Amino acid sequence: MRIGEAAAASGMTTKTLRFYEASGLLPATERATNGYRDYGADITARLDFIRRSRTAGLTLAQIRDILQIRDVGEAPCMHVRDLLARQLADLDRQIGELVALRATVAEFHDAASEPDLAACDPDRICSYL
């Protein structure tokens, strides 16, 4: 399968496939006599895995590690489970930080919604912040 066909089948661009190959996510492909990349039929499953991994927020380095484990014939499932657990913990932390940030911005907004120009301090850039 040529790169354009693989890209179309996976919903990605040829540029993305070349990038993934250069990044080590895709194995180096055989080249036809005309120099075109010739991917095997299993490329679509690998690209689908990469897309799902990116959707889960995994980094390219994490995805590369998973694929390397699989490529040596081992099941990466426990490694993936641990990565997903860390990802969930990171997301929970970020959500907590965003909730706190939202509360702070809401306080500032509430203060700005009822302006008291007489209380405006000329030594400050803006009394709302």
Rank of each mutant, 00 (worst) to 15 (best):
R18L: 02
R31I: 14
R54D: 10
P27H: 08
D42Y: 10
P27I: 09
R70H: 01
D110W: 01
D123F: 02
K15T: 03
D42L: 13
A85F: 00
L26K: 08
H79G: 00
G35Q: 10
R81D: 12
I50A: 00
A32T: 15
A106N: 10
T14K: 09
Y39D: 11
A22F: 06
H109S: 15
A106H: 06
C120P: 01
T13Y: 04
C120Q: 08
Q87E: 12
L98S: 10
R52I: 11
M78N: 10
L98H: 11
I69D: 03
P122N: 10
D65Y: 02
I43M: 04
V80W: 00
A118N: 07
L67H: 01
G57N: 13
L84Y: 01
D121Y: 04
A41P: 08
L91A: 15
R81C: 07
L101W: 02
E30F: 07
A118Y: 01
E74S: 07
S113P: 04
L98G: 10
D48V: 01
D92I: 11
S23K: 15
E97P: 05
A45H: 07
R51Q: 09
A100P: 07
A32L: 10
Q87D: 06
D110K: 03
L58A: 09
A111P: 00
S53R: 04
Y39N: 08
Q87P: 04
Y39S: 06
D42G: 07
A32K: 11
T55M: 08
L25E: 00
I43K: 04
L83N: 00
A112C: 12
R93S: 12
A22M: 09
D71A: 08
A111F: 02
S53M: 04
A112M: 02
L58C: 09
R81S: 11
L17A: 10
T13E: 01
S23I: 14
Y20C: 02
D121L: 08
T55Y: 03
A118E: 05
R37F: 04
R46E: 01
L58P: 05
A118W: 03
